[in-house]
Simulated assay, not measured.
Amino acid sequence: MYKSIFIDLDDTLWHFKANAYDTFNEMYVKYSFNRYFDSFDHFYTLYQKRNQELWLEYGDGKITKEELNNQRFLYPLEAVGVSDTALAKRYSDDFFSVIPTKSQLLPYAKEVLDYLSQKYRLFILSNGFRELQFQKMHSSGISHYFEKVILSDDIQVHKPYPEIFNFALSSTQSLLGESLMIGDSWEADIVGAKGIGMHQMFYNHSGRENLSFQPTYMIKSLKDVLSIL
């Protein structure tokens, strides 16, 4: 049925949560943030809450990429009374230089890519930043599986908006009825793909319930892909 498969990168293949957690831990020690926070978890909880809010604002076009990055690293410091923009900027620069060198993938990612690459054309479709995504793929050894990488940075439109899905189809010369989107984000990947009539495979590793519709496929492990496609 399918010829083209579009796959999200962060937390679908590349283990963003684990790689980010490791990087934040390294930066916390390097910058002696125990001076300001009760614990690493205290810092990380503050960061994550505000980061999620800012990504929604960025996706809706309410803030720029620069504002997103400035605010998400400054917020935890300001929350504990440290208004040091220079410190936040040094921390941010260091973080972004380290995180794309991390290589942890989700379980079975390479096995699945080995399998899929023998049968389908594979493409990355991601909301991530261009300066990071290619390095992440190189560091984790998965670049060679993909014909093309389509990023929201390319057209300044993010998943789930239909423009980026239509751009992905046209730029890869893929037909809608022969294409499938695989991703872990219900809103960005699955709702977005369904919005243009593309089949979807929801990688529900978070155990999300009460879905607004039944996706074409739903998996809890990438290994399940092998028995479906």
Rank of each mutant, 00 (worst) to 15 (best):
F129P: 02
L54Q: 10
Q133K: 10
I182S: 00
V29R: 14
S97H: 14
L125Q: 01
L222A: 03
A18M: 08
D94K: 04
D93S: 12
P162F: 07
D10P: 03
P162M: 08
T45Q: 14
M1W: 04
L74Y: 03
W186D: 06
I219R: 04
S170Q: 15
L151W: 03
Y145M: 05
F95W: 08
Q104H: 11
H138F: 08
S170K: 14
W14Y: 06
I182N: 01
L222F: 05
R121E: 11
I155W: 02
G128A: 14
F95C: 10
N204M: 10
A79K: 09
I7D: 00
H138Q: 14
H158G: 02
K30G: 06
A188R: 00
R50N: 14
E67T: 11
A88G: 05
S103N: 13
F43G: 00
S152A: 14
L176C: 08
I63C: 05
V191S: 09
S212E: 15
Q48E: 13
F202L: 09
K65F: 11
S4V: 02
P160E: 08
M137W: 07
K159C: 04
E111C: 06
D41P: 04
F202R: 02
Q104L: 12
R90M: 10
H15T: 01
G177P: 02
L125N: 00
I7E: 00
P215G: 07
L211E: 12
I142H: 00
Y108R: 10
G59T: 11
K89T: 09
I164D: 01
K220S: 12
L169M: 11
V29L: 15
D41E: 15
S152G: 11
M27P: 01
F43E: 01
H144K: 10
K62E: 15
H158I: 00
S221V: 03
S83P: 00
V29I: 14
